[in-house]
């Protein structure tokens, strides 16, 4: 360090007008910006109060489609076979209805599920689809196993996703 004083290193613009040198007009300009910012709309999204709107292509937790109070599922077990993380368990049974078979037990372990959407892709009946729900949390590991009570979701509720699938599959 040859030069100990800081005076030489200070960069000063020579072409400032007198008003700019007094700094007061510059403060006023800055204040105009900051004060106008106060009244402008904010960037922050009020997340839990205003949920984020999702596109129909969003893959939330997988659910069973419920049409007229009955699930579409015929318990073929393809979803269970294709599931890469072995999260789905289906147990079939017979029924008087036209589809003849139905799942007496259908469980998805939400700790194992990776939201890949393979089950939805492989399903021949379009009976299991990805919903727009994504808040999956539990206190006990045993609460993570979602049975039919939690998995069934009406067609009205899933209308957007079903329309999306019809168009893109």
């Amino acid at each position: 360090m040859k030069d100990n004083g800081s005076a030489k290193r200070v960069i000063r613009k020579d072409d400032l007008t007198f008003l700019q040198k007094t700094y007061i007009t510059e403060i006023a300009k800055g204040l105009r910006l900051t004060v106008s910012k106060i009244f402008k709309p904010k960037f922050t999204h009020n997340y839990p109060d205003e949920p984020w709107p999702f596109q129909p292509s969003f893959r939330g937790r997988p659910v069973l489609v419920e049409e007229d109070g009955i699930e579409r599922c015929v318990a073929c077990g393809l979803c269970s076979r294709v599931c890469p993380s072995l999260a789905i368990e289906v147990q079939a049974s017979e029924t008087e209805l036209e589809k003849e078979r139905y799942p007496i037990r259908f469980e998805i372990n939400m700790i194992r599920c990776i939201f890949c959407g393979f089950c939805e892709e492989v399903c021949p009946e379009e009976a299991i689809v990805m919903s727009d729900e994504y808040l999956v949390a539990f206190y006990q590991p045993k609460d993570a196993i979602y049975g039919k009570d939690k998995l069934l979701m009406s067609t009205e509720r899933l209308a957007k996703r079903l329309a999306f699938l019809k168009e893109n599959r």
Binding site: T34, K37, I38, K40, K42, F43, T44, N46
Partner: peptide, 10 residues
């Protein structure tokens, strides 16, 4: 609050 408003926050 005001600092947040100035910085586009809430």
């Amino acid at each position: 609050r005001i600092s947040a408003f100035i910085q586009d926050r809430l």
